[in-house]
Design a protein around this nucleic acid. Structure first.
Lengths: 130, 130
DNA sequence: CTACTGTACCATATAACGCGGTACAGTAAA
DNA sequence: TTTACTGTACCGCGTTATATGGTACAGTAG
């Protein structure tokens, strides 16, 4: 069991769906440092997609520093590294927050509701991160 | 002055950049109900893009119910309509919040920092909404 | 040796994106 | 009415992104 599922015919590319879900699995603590990821070929087989598509997703995660690769052994959840400066990390998150706020407000949600939803999602994470 | 600017060579399509910025302008209160949007052709000229690209963006915003169109007159910021049920709106926002949380956490931000960033962006909005 | 890993290619097909052009209907002011 | 704007709908074209299928090679572990 891998707990990754994709939706073909979606507006978001398959490889991005994989990236997002691996990222979520790591962020939530479901996958811990050192845990092996499903191999490129096995995950491709399970999702019924091409192995190149999975490889593309893993390549992205590797570049983001979220996973390590060991030729012949596989991919593993990486120890958290600071690949960006504090300012850069804040900048990146802000860039994600802005469209979220715009959409949520135009959808008719109140500020309190938005904050509440965020806290709710944050609450789903494990406290295991020091 | 229109206060819309795009970045060519970005990973996000031009028409989506336009959608996001119009949405932000409306959400922030900078553009109010009834305000005319720049015409398809004039905005296209200003951004140095094709008029079809702007039309595509406006079509999206029209479908989202954020703007009204009047043939021969132009586009105008629409009165807020509830085109989705409460549950559906929450569901949509949650779908946006989840990847944000994943990315922010894996980037190394604390929950408090994330909440703080959100509140900060919310604070930039006008209180003019009823 | 064998079967698994990552990794790197290649060619191909399809779709998305953006451009340029054309066209037509509605609106408003000269 | 004429003119100059508006939205709107096409068409074709080129470029890029996405995904597929195949092949190949190097490293790892039993």
């Amino acid at each position: 069991m891998v707990a990754i599922h994709i939706t073909t015919g979606s507006n978001t590319p398959i490889f991005q769906q994989i990236v997002a879900q691996v990222r979520a699995a790591i962020a939530s603590g479901r996958w811990k440092v050192g845990d092996p990821l499903p191999s490129v070929r096995s995950l491709a087989k399970e999702l019924v997609v091409n192995h190149n598509t999975v490889a593309k997703a893993y390549k992205q995660l590797l570049q983001d520093g979220l996973i390590d690769s060991h030729q012949g052994r596989g991919y593993f959840v990486a120890k958290r590294r600071e690949i960006y400066t504090k300012a850069e990390r804040v900048r990146r998150v802000r860039k994600l927050v802005q469209p979220l706020v715009s959409e949520a407000i135009t959808l008719g949600l109140s500020s309190d509701e938005i904050v509440s939803l965020l806290k709710q999602e944050l609450g789903k994470l494990r406290q295991s991160d020091e």
